[in-house]
C-alpha cells in the first residue's frame, strides 16, 4: 500500500476513535449526571465530536506520519 494512503487510513482510524470516545463520554456524562433533554445531549455530543475531530486530526496525522516515516 502506498505510504501516504497508509498514513491517512491509520490516522483516520485513531482520531475517529478518540473523537467518538470523547463524544460518547460526553453523552454518557450528560445522561447520567443531569436532567438534560435529548436534543441537548445529542447536540452536545455532536459538537464535542466535531471539535474533537478538529483538535485530534492534525495532531494524530502528524504523529502517525512521523512514526511511519521514522
Amino acid at each position: 500500500m502506498e505510504i501516504g494512503r497508509k498514513i491517512a487510513i491509520t490516522s483516520a482510524a485513531i482520531y475517529t476513535a478518540i473523537s467518538l470516545t470523547a463524544s460518547v463520554l460526553f453523552l454518557g456524562a450528560a445522561t447520567l449526571t443531569g436532567q438534560y433533554t435529548a436534543v441537548a445531549r445529542i447536540g452536545g455530543a455532536v459538537w464535542i465530536l466535531l471539535l474533537s475531530f478538529i483538535v485530534t486530526m492534525p495532531l494524530v496525522t502528524s504523529a502517525v506520519k512521523k512514526r511511519m516515516k521514522a
Binding site: I48, L51, I54, V55, L59
Partner: peptide
Amino acid sequence: ILGVHALAILVFVFWFFVGYE
C-alpha cells in the same frame, strides 16, 4: 487554532455541566 478548539471544548463542557445551572 488547535489550542482554541481545545479551549472551546472545555468552555462548552464547563457551561454545559456546571456553569449554566
